[in-house]
Nucleic acid binder design. Structure first.
Lengths: 214, 214, 214, 214
DNA sequence: AATGAATGAGCTTTCATTCAT
DNA sequence: CATGAATGAAAGCTCATTCAT
């Protein structure tokens, strides 16, 4: 009826500026269902080749449903990406919470990140794609910057405490993230099987890369 | 009288199984022009959002011209990717040719790869995208497998000669490639400025990652 | 919740395996409207020369409407042909129902067939065309086989009852159908005016052809 | 150079008003080759679905060749149809030449016609198609009118001489032609095997149809 | 005579989005 | 909330025809 169009902060964080309805329990589920189904399809067939029609048919509803929950197809992908980013960050914070040294934080950060990516391959693929489309690249870039900053902070701390040699913390953070990103990439592409040994090797590789010549 | 439809091996390598005409000098130039222009557009706007119309308008020819040289838009991207792969491999072989030790070969390989990628950012972006679309992913995967194998061979040699500690050569090769892939990725995204120092740092990071604890 | 994708038998008979939505009253009408308009255009301008654009413009709707009801232009023609076949057969069965002798059934069959064809010249022309295109020819052939078999059955009955001399019933049926097909063909081409006399003459011609030398 | 565009009568009969060059021996062969190849393709794939490119590729020449011999694709089909008509008529005249009675002429006419059609199934199919396209229908109609007139003349003669009962000669001629047209149609469609018995039965059917009740 | 290249209107089809119910 | 129907711009692609060489 006369509901104001200005959403509260909580909703904004979750839904952005577009469709901003208060959703019922059922509505919430529908929205999630749409996002999950779409993420799967986007990941396997690609964002552009997947039509809105395909999505709504896939879950057996009319097109109206889609546009009830999302302003555009673009907004859907953005919501999926935002959701994923938020989830990963939350997991990472939890993992790091009770670590005592910077190096421990770094290691746990890497492990959590790898863990999350290989259990959310669809989202990993979507992020990969999003990078290649200017419409979404900015959002992803921002997320990656945050990740780099986080890692760099820990590296700087480690440098200060003399745990690792001084160096360009940000660059090292990027190289480190590069290692595990590519590793996950290969896993997603079916080129590598995940195992504790592989993850350990990757972590070792990074740590030695950071430590440099002893 | 009737021209044989079986193309020679040379042509096959170059054009694949689709349109396989003998091209005149002029035709050869047009084909190249189309590929270059398209690569640029695909890289900046994305493959799907770039229409064939946009490409032909961009170089000021009729639509038919496009389909004279390529069977489909898909075939065009494949041709571009194949071309790029061939070019990179050629460059790498040349760079490695006169190296004397395995470690030298590895280092030169990494440097050449970074070099090539940052001077062919369009193609790098296209490869990124290609990975996210099953239609093209296979080709890219094969190319990357080759790169991994190449590097792994050199690592194995280095292990045999005792230059580096024994380990999973293939995995190390992948981690190494991961470092520079992500680095280039960041460069392409404008997050990092290339410089000799950055490249050196990346190479160092890899070498120490490989060498492990001394 | 999720609607089953397996259409009921009724729908299958009517729509085939392609677009198989449940249509509303309005949708049903649109579908019919499209088929009728298209049949007329196909008949007068030819199937290939008639574009989908022409059809939708003709009934004043957007292009998407066409593809809402039919998978392809080809499917549309097939639907039209199937519809026509079904209608003719139904009419023929009704006409034959209360005939008492085989010869009466044959005569009524011929007359009904001529009658139907001259009042549905559009469909007759479409069948003519369909014969010349392998994509549609099979369907038409099957329909004609059925017609031949029907007539042959009656001829065989007549032979058994001694009403006509023994002979190759199927071949006679074909010749008989040939007579009226060509007659209708000439009518459709404007070479012959239909009249009771003409129809009577054709029927006589057939009957004498069948009876042979007394 | 300064060759007049007004062709001689002979050439006109053969080539119509379009391309009217004096062809060399080789040119004559190319033209024939094009027509034969095109007739085969048109017959099997349809006129519209067969492209000029397909034709010239099929015989291994460039597109220029096609347009050297024919003004348009349409003109090609017309030339093929005209050729076929001329050939059939010539054969029929030869077959009838030494017949002594009208009925003999009729029978020979029918037999020749069936004979020609089953040995030129491609052309028969093309005529079938041509009927369904207004651009070509007129030409075919005229040819069929001639055939009907020819047959009707013989029937009229037969009536005058008391060989058959009086009746509408033209209509009978049409019904007669209908019988064998449909027969050939079924042969072309692979529904009937040609044999002397079948042809005899068809001829008998016609003769009895004409003779009516004795 | 013949070729390879080019043209560009037009084709079939798709699809994000909107709307009446 | 939800549906089926509709929109129409735009996509990929075809093809009869023309032209420079």
């Amino acid at each position: 009826m006369s509901s104001t169009r200005v959403p509260g902060l909580d909703q904004l964080v979750k839904y952005g500026w577009g469709v901003d309805r208060k959703l019922t329990q059922r509505g919430e589920e529908r929205r999630t269902q749409l996002m999950e189904f779409a993420a799967a399809r986007f990941a396997s067939n690609g964002y552009h080749p997947t039509s809105v029609a395909e999505i709504v048919e896939g879950i057996g509803v009319g097109k109206g449903v889609f546009y009830w929950y999302f302003d555009t197809k673009e907004a859907l992908l953005e919501a999926i990406l935002a959701d994923a980013q938020r989830d990963l960050r939350r997991k990472q914070r939890a993992a790091i919470a009770d670590a005592t040294t910077p190096m421990e934080r770094i290691e746990r950060g890497i492990r959590t990140s790898i863990q999350w990516s290989v259990t959310h391959t669809d989202h990993f693929r979507l992020v990969q794609f999003a990078t290649t489309d200017e419409r979404f690249a900015a959002r992803v870039r921002k997320g990656q910057q945050v990740a780099v900053q986080d890692a760099a902070t820990h590296l700087t701390d480690a440098m200060k405490e003399g745990e690792i040699p001084l160096g360009d913390a940000e660059l090292l953070a990027q190289l480190m993230i590069g290692v595990h990103t590519y590793l996950v990439h290969q896993v997603v592409q079916g080129q590598v099987e995940v195992s504790d040994e592989v993850v350990d090797a990757a972590v070792d590789f990074c740590l030695h890369g950071i430590l440099g010549p002893r």
